[in-house]
């Protein structure tokens, strides 16, 4: 089932002096079953774009198709709940949406709203997935550390068992090990549970290491959609969008500049070092 944007525009505060066009004529096809990164400067329309995926925002013009539903501008969408159950959207700093007395109750909140009969079971499974121990289930979410709170908040979305998971800068403010385990979680959700994952991020290292496809946005428009491998073939494409390429690609380009011959595809430190070590005196 597709995720499709057709000629989508979104204008905030139309008809007032604060009118602001956040998306203009966006056409985009997000591949099912993949991890797609959406990158671009702050204010390029990334957040506006992803909020169309579960109809939190409706297009000012154009058509959005998500799974089996089509949202057309000007028409009142039917069965929003059905859509929101299947497209889980995790906002930036989601720890700020926790409110229940206990962690378990908070994670159950979503499934209950959608009328799940087995919400407790679903909540427990989700908490296990994000690595929250059972001994914490009855504690108040406010007692947790920042990283743990975020895991609980993400579990609150996973418990709805959505087909598509959309994450807006999920690792912002986390320390390196926290970020890494968070990204591993999304990777697993994609590989083991076949979830379609869409991540809004600024971190090119993450895009390079975990994502399949990349969408570049600028000034409310899609500038490029391609697979991650060709995006990071060298740093020139990144540079043309004002994006700093991952370390590995920058290193590769600097070495080529210094006279190394690196024609093969490089996707890890090991693969680069193998090529380089053949060309140096030992």
């Amino acid at each position: 089932m597709p995720i499709l944007f057709e000629n989508v525009s979104h204008i905030y505060s139309e008809g007032t002096p604060f009118r602001y066009s956040a998306l203009s004529n966006v056409n985009l096809d997000i591949t099912e079953g993949k991890i797609t990164a959406i990158v671009g400067e702050t204010g390029s329309g990334k957040s506006t774009l992803v909020q169309h995926l579960n109809a939190l925002l409706l297009p000012t013009s154009g058509k959005v198709t998500v799974l089996d539903r089509t949202i057309i501008s000007g028409e009142k969408p039917k069965d929003l709940k059905g859509l929101r159950r299947n497209v889980g959207l995790v906002f930036q700093f989601p720890e700020y949406q926790l409110f229940e007395e206990t962690i378990l109750k908070d994670v159950e909140f979503g499934p209950k709203n959608f009328g799940f009969e087995d919400s407790e079971k679903k909540a427990k499974e989700a908490l296990k997935m994000v690595g929250i121990e059972e001994s914490l289930f009855e504690k108040s979410p406010l007692e947790l550390s920042g990283g743990q709170k975020r895991r609980v908040a993400i579990a609150g979305i996973l418990a709805m068992n959505p087909k598509v998971i959309v994450l807006d800068e999920p690792t912002a403010g986390l320390d390196p090990s926290g970020s890494k385990s968070m990204m591993n979680l999304f990777y697993d959700l994609n590989k083991k549970y076949n979830k379609t994952i869409i991540i809004v991020t600024h971190d090119m290292e993450q895009v390079f290491a975990y994502c399949d496809e990349v969408v570049v946005m600028s000034q409310g428009q899609i500038k490029l959609k391609t697979d991650v491998k060709s995006f990071f073939k060298d740093s020139s494409l990144c540079k043309s969008f004002g994006i700093l390429a991952p370390h590995l690609i920058r290193l590769k380009d600097s070495l080529i500049e210094k006279g190394f011959k690196i024609d093969e595809e490089v996707d890890s430190i090991e693969s680069l070092v193998k090529i380089v070590s053949r060309q140096v005196k030992k």
Binding site: S254, L255, I269, V276, K282
Partner: peptide, 30 residues
Amino acid sequence: KVVEELRKQKVKISDEVTMEGLVNQLANLI
């Protein structure tokens, strides 16, 4: 991380924490 990997491949290289330094060391070895 690159330095460590290079050493596994028997490349003689001194400790380096910046990209610039690493590139310069390798350029001298080519």
